[in-house]
């Protein structure tokens, strides 16, 4: 058995110090650099859409698919009700629905579907790669699962909030009560200099 000498202790101390510094720099970066999560997707008319397209609006972004019979209509309904609860402040909010099923959700399909939810929701699709990149940036998980009758998509259901400057702020649960959701949103919107 070797003796744990002072030089080994020094090495251990240095490793800890380095790890601490890395952690410190990591956190500092997180606080100082605005959390912008750019993306390139396609609108329902086939046009390119990036995060900058929503400058000046509070974006409520969520991922879903139109062949989702149970959860997605509920989330869309919840967002429509939240906008209603926001009253005049709703004009500064832009809901954005990004499909995780570009195979079935083409621009026209998305447009038809979203028209039923008050016509305020912007639908985005894209290539499988574009959608995968965007979802990864927003920590959204989705996967295709084969069923007896075809396939369905498992997907994260969070509603994400982006500031008018394009900075990612936080995620909400889609089943928050619309009145509570509106209250929380309004509190964030009032705090902002915009």
């Amino acid at each position: 058995m070797t003796k744990f000498g002072s030089w080994q202790a020094l090495v251990v101390a240095l490793i800890f110090a380095a790890a601490g510094m890395v952690t410190y720099i990591g956190t500092r970066d997180l606080h100082e650099k605005p959390d912008r999560r750019d993306f390139l997707l396609q609108g329902t008319e086939g046009q390119a859409v990036t995060l900058d397209a929503f400058k000046g609006k509070w974006v409520l972004m969520f991922f879903g698919f139109t062949s989702c019979p149970d959860i997605c209509p509920n989330t869309l309904l919840n967002i429509a009700n939240t906008l209603e609860a926001l009253g005049p402040d709703a004009k500064d909010v832009q809901p954005v629905f990004i499909t995780v099923d570009p195979e079935r959700d083409t621009g026209p399909v998305l447009k038809d579907y979203l028209a039923n939810f008050g016509g305020h929701v912007v639908g985005l699709t894209g290539t499988a790669k574009q959608i995968a990149q965007t979802a990864a940036r927003y920590q959204t998980f989705y996967s295709k699962r084969t069923t007896e009758d075809g396939y369905t998509m498992d997907h994260s259901t969070a509603v994400e909030l982006i500031s008018p400057e394009g900075v990612y702020l936080r995620a909400f649960r889609p089943d928050d009560d619309p009145d509570d959701f509106a209250k929380e949103l309004r509190a964030v919107m009032r705090k902002s200099p915009t």
Binding site: D70, I71, T147, H155, S156, T157, A158
Partner: peptide, 19 residues
């Protein structure tokens, strides 16, 4: 049509529809 009883269940923030 095809019809099955399903359950929407959230597991770790991911919503799945399970037969």
């Amino acid at each position: 049509a095809m019809a099955d009883v399903h359950e929407s269940r959230e597991q770790g923030g991911v919503m799945r529809m399970l037969p």
